Measured scan of single mutants.
Amino acid sequence: MIINNLKLIREKKKISQSELAALLEVSRQTINGIEKNKYNASLQLALKIAYYLNTPLEDIFQWQ
Rank of each mutant, 00 (worst) to 15 (best):
L43F: 14
F61K: 02
L47C: 15
K13W: 06
K14H: 14
F61Y: 03
N5V: 04
L53Q: 02
L53M: 06
E19N: 10
R10W: 06
N54M: 08
I9V: 11
Q62D: 06
I9G: 01
Y51S: 09
E25S: 14
S16R: 07
R28C: 14
L24P: 00
N4A: 03
L57W: 04
I3L: 13
T30H: 11
A46V: 06
I49G: 00
S27C: 08
W63H: 06
L6K: 00
K36N: 15
Q17A: 06
I3R: 11
S18L: 10
E19P: 02
I2C: 15
L20V: 02
L6W: 02
I31A: 00
F61G: 02
N54C: 12
L57M: 11
I9Q: 05
F61C: 06
L23R: 10
W63Q: 06
Y51R: 09
I49W: 00
M1V: 11
R28Q: 15
L6V: 07
E11W: 05
Y51H: 13
L45E: 03
Y52S: 06
D59E: 14
L57S: 02
Y51G: 06
L53W: 03
W63A: 05
K7N: 04
I2K: 11
R10D: 02
N5W: 06
K7I: 05
R28I: 15
T30R: 09
K14R: 12
N40M: 13
L53P: 00
L43H: 12
D59R: 08
A41S: 06
K7D: 03
I2V: 13
L43K: 13
Q64S: 14
L6H: 00
L24W: 02
L20Y: 02
D59Y: 09
N32G: 08
A21K: 02
L47K: 14
T30P: 01
Q17H: 03
A46S: 08
K38P: 05
N4C: 08
A22V: 10
S18A: 14
W63Y: 09
E11Y: 06
I3G: 10
K48S: 07
A22H: 11
W63D: 05
E58G: 12
L47H: 12
I9F: 09
L53H: 07
K36F: 05
S16A: 06
A46T: 06
S16P: 05
G33S: 14
L8N: 13
K7T: 07
N4P: 04
S27I: 02
I2Q: 08
L24A: 10
I15K: 05
I15V: 11
D59I: 08
V26Y: 03
T55G: 02
K48Y: 03
L8M: 12
A41L: 15
D59S: 09
N40R: 14
Q29H: 14
A22Y: 08
S27Q: 05
L23D: 06
N4D: 03
W63N: 05
Y52K: 05
L57A: 05
K36M: 15
K7S: 07
E19K: 14
Q29K: 14
L20D: 00
D59K: 10
I15W: 05
A22T: 12
L45M: 10
L24H: 00
E19R: 12
I31K: 02
A50V: 04
L43T: 09
Q62I: 11
K38S: 09
K36H: 13
E35M: 03
Q64V: 11
L24S: 05
R10S: 01
P56S: 07
K12R: 12
I9D: 02
E35L: 03
L45T: 05
E58T: 11
S42P: 14
Y39H: 11
L23E: 08
M1L: 14
K48I: 03
N4G: 05
F61Q: 01
N54T: 08
F61A: 01
I49D: 00
L43N: 07
N5L: 06
Q62G: 11
Q44A: 14
L8C: 15
L47Q: 14
N32C: 10
I31D: 01
A50M: 03
Y39R: 12
Y51C: 13
A41V: 15
Q29W: 12
N5D: 04
A22Q: 13
Y39T: 11
I60T: 04
Q62S: 10
N40T: 15
Q44S: 13
I9K: 01
N54P: 01
I15E: 02
M1K: 10
I9S: 02
L43V: 11
N54D: 15
L53S: 04
I31W: 03
L45P: 00
K48H: 05
Q64W: 06
K36I: 12
E35Q: 04
N54H: 10
A46W: 12
E35W: 01
